[in-house]
């Protein structure tokens, strides 16, 4: 069954949606959208690194995404407003990655695969990496769920309960880096942020608890992945952007519902 590239693509999309949903909720709750973008953009530098050193793409992007996320975390408290700082880092990382990749012979040709994903070319190995990474992210978030929620609600309340909010931040950083590394093949560096944020945002009007929001986000993400793939097949459009468009349509419907009700 895994011989069919469409089946592999669908499974890849579902795997990503599963990992991105709970993580995307934290990205929304903690206002980390820019942080997610900066980490995702650093992945292009990781691609350049992987190609130059003949490493697996997954390894290079994971390393660069981790470095970026840790750097942002460390710089966070100083001087420049965090928004500005993240904007600077995010765009610089993208530009540096695009420049660096031109030095790697032959890489220029398939650059768009790394920017927008190439889900139809997912191999069995890719699929194993994607599902392995997604399982790791989901397991990590489930394990820390109560602590992550408390730290998100208020670092002071977390401290009072003996939880170190910085450690929980590191957990999210790690989960984000793994998700970016997994997602680059599926939706590409430029659209990872969208797959994190849009399903979570679409889930918000229907949820009364954090758990419900994460589950609904997973359903939205999965639906968007399948619908996007279907659209890409029917209209011969790029798959990654089609998936994001499908998610955006669901978000619009949900926002309309939210307004109508609220």
């Amino acid at each position: 069954m895994l011989d069919d590239f469409l089946i592999r693509a669908a499974l890849a999309g579902l795997g990503l949606a599963l990992a991105a949903a709970p993580l995307g909720c934290f990205v929304a709750w903690r206002r980390m959208a820019f942080f997610g973008d900066a980490t995702a953009h650093a992945a292009i530098l990781g691609v350049a690194l992987s190609l130059a050193l003949s490493l697996p793409i997954f390894a290079g992007t994971l390393v660069m995404a981790l470095i970026m996320a840790l750097a942002v975390g460390a710089l966070g408290g100083r001087g420049l407003a965090v928004d500005t700082l993240l904007g600077v880092l995010s765009h610089s990382a993208l530009a540096a990655g695009l420049v660096a990749i031109t030095f790697v012979p032959g890489a220029r040709l398939d650059l768009s695969a790394y920017l927008f994903g190439d889900i139809l070319a997912v191999t069995r190995t890719d699929l194993a990496v994607i599902w392995g990474g997604a399982a790791l992210v989901v397991a990590l978030i489930l394990w820390r769920w109560q602590r992550l929620l408390t730290a998100t609600l208020s670092p002071d309340l977390a401290h009072a309960s003996g939880i170190d909010p910085r450690r929980e931040q590191h957990v999210l950083t790690l989960a984000l880096a793994v998700t970016v590394a997994v997602a680059i093949k599926v939706v590409g560096a430029l659209l990872i942020g969208a797959m994190l944020l849009i399903p979570a945002a679409a889930a918000r009007p229907f949820a009364r608890t954090p758990e419900a929001m994460a589950l609904i986000a997973a359903a939205v993400g999965g639906t968007a992945a399948l619908a996007g793939l279907e659209a890409a097949w029917l209209f011969d459009t790029p798959a990654g952007p089609s998936m994001v468009c499908a998610a955006a349509v669901i978000f619009l419907a949900s926002a309309a519902f939210g307004r109508g009700r609220g």
Partner: peptide
């Protein structure tokens, strides 16, 4: 501990009941 100020982000859905179950 009851902090002086705590604002809950409206993007985070949280009932009072659920809030009481954090972190234990």
């Amino acid at each position: 501990y009851v902090p002086q100020a705590l604002r809950i982000d409206p993007t985070l859905p949280m009932t009072v009941r659920r809030f009481l179950s954090l972190p234990a």
